[in-house]
């Protein structure tokens, strides 16, 4: 399968009835966009709370493991909502996004944020019992928190930037 085949398949998705109805409705697109922003805001805000705890700046009297158990299930639920709404937004704008470098950078940053989270859960979080309330948290945990904050900041920035006419990065 070539890139042209993928692009053709993506364009064909625009003919799906559900996509057509959202795209042609006066309210469909703004509502979908608002839902995507709402889910994304919840994801970023909740992850930032955990990151700030890992950096030792917020919720310092709460055990890290307790915060992770409280926050992450809801973060995943919101991430699912953001993925579904973002997927439909992508299909609606496939011609605009398919060769949009800001969009590609956003996707890469999200993958890196996911890899950082995996590394944290398979690294310092494995022995969280040993540092659950330790201040400051271990260096590896602080690095994971700082990286996560920076990556999600980038996701929000490029998520905003990709809508502009200059999102082919000519402005950089």
């Amino acid at each position: 399968m070539t890139l042209a085949d993928i692009a053709q398949a993506l364009r064909a998705m625009q003919d799906w009835p559900v996509v057509q109805s959202v795209g042609q409705s006066a309210y469909g697109f703004p509502l979908l966009d608002a839902a995507h922003i709402l889910f994304q805001a919840f994801v970023v805000g909740s992850i930032a709370a955990l990151d700030l705890r890992l950096l030792g700046y917020a919720f310092v009297h709460r055990p890290v493991s307790e915060l992770v158990r409280q926050i992450l299930p809801w973060t995943w639920a919101a991430f699912a909502g953001a993925s579904v709404t973002g997927g439909v937004l992508f299909i609606l704008n496939v011609v605009k996004f398919v060769d949009n470098r800001a969009f590609l950078i956003k996707m890469v940053l999200m993958l890196l944020a996911g890899a950082n989270m995996l590394a944290f859960h398979n690294g310092p979080y494995r022995n969280v019992d040993a540092w659950d309330l330790q201040m400051p948290p271990p260096r590896a945990a602080r690095i994971a928190g700082a990286l996560s904050l920076a990556l999600w900041l980038g996701v929000v920035f490029f998520g905003r930037y990709l809508w502009y006419p200059w999102s082919n990065m000519a402005g950089f």
Binding site: L38, A41, F42, V44, G45, S46, A48, A49, L153, V156
Partner: peptide, 10 residues
């Protein structure tokens, strides 16, 4: 948007 994220998550 980051400010909004804090407000919405809280």
């Amino acid at each position: 948007l980051l400010g909004m994220s804090v407000v919405i998550a809280a």
